[in-house]
Simulated scan of single mutants.
Amino acid sequence: MSKLGLGCGRMSNANSDRRESIATIHAALVAGITHLNTADFYTSGHNEMLIGEALKGSNRDKAFLSVKFGALVAPNGAMYGLDVRPQHIKNYVAYTLKRLNVEYIDLYQPARIDLAIPVEETIGAIADLVQAGYVKHIGITQVDDNTLRKAHAVHPIKLAEYQYSLFNRSIEKDILPAARELGIEVVAFGTLAHGLLGGTWSKDKVDHSNAYIPLFAKENIDTNLALVEALREIAAAKQMTVAQLAVAWVLAKGDDIIPLIGARKVNQLQESMKSLDVRLTERDVQSIEEAIPETKIAGGSFPQMKFKNGVVIR
């Protein structure tokens, strides 16, 4: 497993360039970033087909393909529900294998867990696919520590995927200790807090994709931008960008944590990879966390979605 993973979802955005996206995947593999993170519902399968094209030839053996499944997405791109019923999982895998043009998936995981379906049943259905050779490893995402333990008892969980950034450290309380006890590595998405830690955000910037996130609400954004500026001072002193420092902080939190970077251009990939060269001391980590104290963060960084019978409950 590489120390960084490449989150490929943004490569299928309307303003993304197909050739540049494929070049970015190739550059990542050459640089040793093997973990390619996607989902069957990213742009209705387009992302899987894009990755499949990039992996033609000898590139398949260089990649560790991580795929999420189960989210129900409308034609306008909005997520409206979840379907992780065990009897449907084989069907999902069949379509994913076709779109990726591969014979197996390295890691397969439900996008969320449906509270109406015992997690043991969902993981058990994936375990059958492991036995059949279509899936190598099982992952899970955004579950509590108790559910993580239940899932791991059915079949070893290789990776658990959670949002983790300076603006969301909730996994440190119960989930990260449980994962470490069980020997499960953690994949960290959202390390730049939906762009807030990208270093270029301003309250006048228009980005409707983040409008639903409380961090960016009118009553919260000024407070959070002030915290980013405090982090910028530390980054400047270390001659790096805010984004590089934010990713380096996640890397410094443990060798068992793999941050995802959302690069969709080669130059973005190269900039993000510079975080691998950063060595933060314990004092550095403390200073960074003091610059963005949890008690000062205004608003949540992720809507808490739970599902029952395939419908969102809040």
Rank of each mutant, 00 (worst) to 15 (best):
I221M: 03
I221T: 03
D222C: 06
D222M: 10
D222T: 09
D222R: 07
T223E: 15
T223H: 14
T223A: 15
N224K: 14
N224R: 14
N224W: 11
N224H: 14
L225V: 13
L225P: 13
L225W: 12
A226F: 00
A226N: 06
A226V: 03
A226M: 06
L227Q: 11
L227S: 09
V228W: 05
V228I: 08
V228H: 08
V228Y: 01
V228F: 08
V228D: 05
E229I: 08
E229G: 05
E229H: 14
A230N: 15
A230F: 00
L231Y: 01
L231T: 02
R232C: 02
R232L: 02
R232A: 12
R232V: 01
R232T: 06
R232W: 03
R232E: 08
R232P: 02
E233P: 06
E233Y: 10
I234N: 03
I234Y: 10
I234G: 05
I234W: 04
I234R: 04
I234E: 06
A235D: 05
A235R: 06
A235I: 08
A235C: 12
A235Q: 05
A235L: 10
A235V: 07
A236W: 05
A237Q: 15
A237N: 15
A237E: 15
A237I: 04
A237W: 08
K238H: 12
K238L: 09
K238V: 06
K238W: 11
Q239G: 07
Q239S: 15
M240A: 03
M240C: 11
T241A: 11
T241H: 07
T241D: 07
T241R: 09
T241P: 09
V242L: 07
V242D: 03
V242Q: 03
V242N: 04
A243T: 01
A243G: 05
A243W: 01
A243C: 05
Q244T: 03
Q244H: 08
Q244M: 06
L245A: 07
L245Y: 00
L245C: 03
A246M: 04
A246E: 04
A246W: 04
V247N: 09
V247K: 06
V247E: 06
V247C: 11
A248V: 02
A248M: 01
W249A: 00
W249P: 04
V250K: 05
V250I: 12
V250Q: 03
V250N: 04
L251G: 01
L251F: 07
A252K: 07
A252R: 01
A252L: 06
K253G: 01
K253P: 01
K253F: 00
K253Y: 00
G254Y: 13
G254F: 12
G254L: 12
G254N: 13
D255Q: 15
D256Q: 09
D256P: 10
D256K: 11
D256N: 14
I257M: 05
I257T: 06
I258F: 01
I258V: 14
I258M: 11
I258D: 03
I258Q: 10
I258W: 00
